[in-house]
């Protein structure tokens, strides 16, 4: 164990906002978000990289922020659930989760929406199998996944529709 607490300076952008901080090497990204930046929408549900409640995007890729040290996010752009909305308007994924009753207690929801975000960025019209695979790293104990899958399908339709309209 080191004698004095070692800290490392890092800079990162979270939901478009730049931050410069010094952190202990052992600080996990999820703690950085929750405890240092007060972004408590990202949750912790397990200790073993199973449940995905802590999922955020690092440079567009979904990761479990409980399995990344904060120092590793130095220079990265991070998107958390708090960054999904724009000027108070819900993101189409958020809207779809609401419309389809895709959440109950809401604890897993932020992680699931960010896993969805990555999926739909790469696959505009995923079939049910692709959706199940894309959320295989996110545990939900309330919904049985049924309405989550519906919500992701609805989000895909919403987003695809928006893009098609804007390209006309």
């Amino acid at each position: 164990m080191p004698d004095a607490v070692e800290t490392i300076p890092i800079r990162l952008k979270v939901n478009g906002k730049s931050h410069s901080l010094t952190v202990e090497p052992r600080l996990l990204l999820v703690e950085l978000l929750r405890e240092h930046l007060d972004l408590t929408g990202t949750h912790v549900g397990c200790d073993t990289t199973y449940c995905g409640a802590c999922t955020v995007l690092i440079n567009g890729a979904a990761v479990k922020s409980c399995t990344v040290f904060a120092v590793q996010a130095d220079g990265a752009e991070i998107l958390t659930v708090e960054g999904l909305e724009t000027d108070g308007q819900l993101h189409p994924i958020q809207r779809a989760f609401a419309e389809c009753y895709g959440l109950q207690c809401g604890y897993c929801t932020p992680g699931l929406m960010l896993a969805t975000h990555q999926l739909l960025a790469r696959n505009k019209r995923p079939d049910e199998k692709a959706i199940r695979k894309a959320i295989a790293g996110n545990t939900c104990r309330c919904t049985g996944y049924q309405n989550i899958i519906k919500a992701i399908q609805a989000a895909a339709r919403n987003m695809d529709g928006v893009q098609q309209r804007s390209s006309v």
Partner: peptide, 9 residues
């Protein structure tokens, strides 16, 4: 391998 998130890292 594992899930999307783990494969990304």
């Amino acid at each position: 391998i594992a899930d999307v998130q783990v494969r990304n890292r």
